[in-house]
Write a protein that binds this DNA or RNA. Structure first.
Length: 485
RNA sequence: GGUCCCAUCGUCUAACGGUUAGGACAUGGCCCUCUCAAGGCUAAAAUAGGGGUUCGAUUCCCCUUGGGACUACCA
């Protein structure tokens, strides 16, 4: 007997599958499966500039690996498809136009330049940020003509703010109303110049058309929920229930980030974390069943699952606890299970490290000896040795200066994902200008990045480790060198 | 800055008005032991502060403080 409960996980195919996606998926999955409902997967690829090839497939694989199977989705279809937003463009456009006709949305012809200027001015005057409503003044028929004539435009939500209106929604996890004054709410863009919808429009339209009953998503969405509420009202649709999961955090309490924590599900899998441990751990962070045992599977969670038992405070993602759970699960495997786990891990790790595996092969002496070379990819903190940094040719200050400068240089890549060549060029500059000779500079970097004077080729390793973790390691190395007496 | 969310050991949490504030991870000590793991025992460790409400507040309300998120033609 199917219930009316329908929930979804809606990841964006940008980069590696994120542990936060699994966290959100887990609770969605639990609600659906504890109540005989449906769990759907929808790909939110409305920002074409951020989508990366292979990411979608990678998300599917990672979620399936964890056992978070979906009932409807882009790869398996379902009665409310398509489940990829880029394939639903006409739907959003049509709905956006509906809102314009109803007077709940309007065309905006402001240029990026004008918007930037406006924002600058608001900042300078310390006023609250947000669109100033300039294009609200344009006569609707006039605006319609201009848009029709092909003038670049967006469609904005017309937030009613004349009479001190407020917008409220009930949060099923916090078990309370959350209220916003409409004055605080921006006239959000619904349809972009390129004809793609923003998250706000696409998410509301799809959730409605896909009959979503509960929107369970991360806490960062709380401030935009009132906009969604207004959209439901403008369309005249029934509202789903809302539930916001607290954010996973780094040890310093900031939102969990790859700069400070491993966050890629692929990394966890390649590093040998078991799916059971990850699920158990994520469950532990956000949920307590009230039962005595801290060891549980997804099906254990289903028993008596309830949104109001999900915690409201944001947990620190404590890798130590995960490691302990992982040990326990490995120990609990049958011998066959253990062998299977090893096969899977080696297979996955080798593929994960494929760009550098031929280099590992050259150095492979016997047995499972590839670990000797690849372990450093899966450590969160390296164990440095003073003598590796301070040699005949180098002193403390030189090493410190070189590494500090390099950290800044790598940071300067910004959003770019640097390749091995990029790293090489970046480091070359420092071998030319630093006080150290090239050989010593490179050795210093090698030790900082890999933890050893003997390692796989440096630039390729750095590319695989990734910009953020490289910077993190170099900073840790600087701190270590500083601590040497 | 503004808005909103959150607040129990270092960390994850239990206690949904009455407990010596419980457990787990990590940490220290001890035991077991051919090494290392594992296992057993044990120690230290928390209700952010101030006001209310109540016979009684970790629990309900308010203020302060602290932390976080959001503040994009990103999601």
């Amino acid at each position: 007997m199917a219930s009316n409960i329908r929930v979804r996980i809606a990841p964006s195919p940008t980069g590696e599958p994120h542990v936060g996606t699994a966290y959100t998926a887990l609770f969605n999955y639990c609600l659906a499966h504890s109540a005989n409902g449906k769990f759907l997967l929808r790909i939110e690829d409305t920002d074409q500039t951020r989508c990366t090839p292979g990411s979608e497939e990678s998300i599917f694989k990672a979620l399936r690996w964890l056992g978070l199977e979906w009932d409807e989705g882009p790869d398996i279809g379902g009665p409310f498809g398509p489940y990829r937003q880029s394939e639903r463009l006409p739907i959003y456009k049509e709905h956006a136009m509906q809102l314009v006709e109803k007077g709940s949305a309007y065309f905006c012809f402001c240029t990026q330049e004008r918007l930037a200027k406006m924002q600058e001015k608001q900042k300078a005057e310390k006023k609250n940020l947000g669109y100033d409503g300039c294009c609200r003044l344009i006569d609707p028929t006039e605006a319609g003509k201009r848009a029709h004539a092909g003038e670049p435009h967006v469609i904005r939500l017309k937030v009613e703010k004349s009479n001190n209106e407020t917008t409220t929604f009930f949060d099923e996890i916090r078990q309370k109303d959350v209220t916003y004054n409409n004055i605080e709410i921006d006239d959000q863009i619904l349809l972009k110049t390129d004809g793609f919808p923003t998250y706000h429009l696409a998410n509301v339209v799809d959730d409605h058309l896909m009959r979503i009953s509960h929107v369970i998503r991360a806490e960062e969405w709380i401030p935009s929920t009132p906009k969604h509420v207004m959209l439901y009202k403008a369309f005249g649709w029934d509202m789903p229930k809302f539930a916001h999961l607290s954010l996973l955090r780094n040890a310093d309490k900031s939102k969990v980030s790859k700069r400070k924590n491993p966050v890629s599900l692929n990394w966890f899998r390649a590093a040998g974390y078991t799916k059971e441990a990850i699920i158990n751990f994520l469950g532990l962070l956000g949920y307590s069943s009230g039962s005595a045992s801290e060891r549980f599977t997804i099906s254990d969670m289903l028993n008596g699952f309830s949104l109001d038992r999900i915690s409201t405070s944001s947990p620190v993602f404590d890798l130590e606890k995960l490691k302990t759970l992982n040990e326990e699960y490995i120990r609990g495997y049958s011998l066959d299970g253990y062998i299977q786990y090893m096969k899977d891990t080696i297979d996955f790790a080798a593929r994960h490290l494929s760009p550098i595996m031929s280099e590992v092969q050259k150095r492979h002496k016997i047995g499972l000896g590839f670990n000797v070379w690849t372990d450093m990819f899966f450590k969160t903190e390296l164990e440095y040795t003073a003598n590796d940094f301070i040699t005949k040719e180098t002193n403390k200050k030189q090493v410190e200066d070189t590494l500090s400068a390099l950290a800044k240089a790598i940071d300067a890549f910004g959003k770019k994902i640097p390749t091995a060549q990029d790293f090489e060029e970046c480091i070359r500059i420092y071998t030319d200008t630093s006080g150290l000779d090239a050989r010593s500079t490179l050795m210093t970097v090698r030790v900082a990045i890999t933890g050893s004077q003997t390692s796989l080729p440096l630039y390729e390793s750095m590319a695989l480790i990734g910009k953020d973790r490289c910077v993190q390691r170099i900073k840790q190395a600087v701190a270590y060198v500083r601590s040497i007496r």
